[in-house]
Design a binder for these strands. Sequence first.
DNA 1: TCTGGGGTCCTAGGACCC
DNA 2: TCTGGGGTCCTAGGACCC
Length: 400
Amino acid sequence: MDAFFVSVEELYDPSLKGKPVVVGGKAHERGVVSAASYAARRFGVHSAMPLRTAAQLCPHAIFIDGHRDRYELHSKQVKAVIESFTPKFEMASIDEGYLDMTGTERLHGPPLAAAHKLHEAIKNQTQLNNSIGASTARLVSKVASDQAKPNGVLWIPPGAEAAFLAPLDIRKIPGVGKVAEKNLQDLGIYKVGDLARLDDRILFERFGKLGLALAGKAKGFDAGSWFEKDLSNNAEDPKSISHEFTFDKDTADQATLESTLAHMSEKVGRRLRDHSLHARTVQIKYRYSDFSTFTRAHSLDHATQLDTEIYQTARQLFLRHWQPGRPIRLLGVHTAGFEDSEGQLDLIDGERNEKLKKVFGAADILRDKFGESTLNLAGSLKGRFRERVHDGITKKSGQS
DNA sequence: TCTGGGGTCCTAGGACCC
DNA sequence: TCTGGGGTCCTAGGACCC
């Protein structure tokens, strides 16, 4: 999809059309650009750029907060169109999908015609601009769709894959970021064609697995068909669940830091319960004002999905490593090492665990009914209500 | 200009076990 | 006195993607 978040926002506010629009937050906020309209891009604004930088480059741009729920809704509409073309498809992200069109010629015609048909169908049914790349390989199609933007269709016929990629900058290859680009340039490799000519062994020696993958990509090969991925071990189950938060202003206030950790722990616990997952490893992330960033992890002897256990672990890790008084910019709580259940607990712990699970389950329901702020871990209240009830759960006064 | 948040995958060292 | 080899698990950091 072309400038997806911006295009969706234009559906809700047509007056945005044609104007420089930046989705991601207010101009003065700490944050980065999620999406920029083409009008904003003409001023040099692009995604991942700090909002404050974007505001410097394009002061008259319209800055808006993102609406994830809207994007997910419209992503589903796009998915429905794709689905109507072939059952062999896959959404690769919220605004990107792949279709295996093998064997659909009688229905959709030859590749280029089919691509145009899809392009039109998406536009007609979602009112959103999109670009299509068509070829024999996923990677080539993805790069082709990028080249087709905005609002275009590009077909790379069989046999033309390597020739299409050769003149492009190596940065266009998915998996080549800033660092790999620099390292490759140091070897005199600037274009995909330079990469394709290089000996695979050299690439492996210099770049390990990444080098090997690159060698294939540069020639237009795909590492296996993604449509044949085994669906046996529930691919939709996440491998980690985390939340992090950047303060508007750096802080060294211990109560604020602890309550933020508690809040992140609650968010993580909630999502673990939603996925019926139990995590064995709790990790925190903290970033100082100078942007130096650290992670510290601890693996429990059993898996958990309880806010309090996550918080206690996170808090201990933090207090053990934080240099008191040194202002913090970001805090995060991360869980991984998922297991189906918490494993064997002894009688006492088992009973305690069951009780807490009921308490948090009830809290989840209350939050769904009455809103996020209904209940908090004692630690996430900034000192005002410090009483500790039932292992750290307390009720905000005036709310039930 | 000052740099989000949620993920995945890879690398590397060290502890520990047999 | 001169320290194997194979494996797993844990921790930390970093590149990259959207």
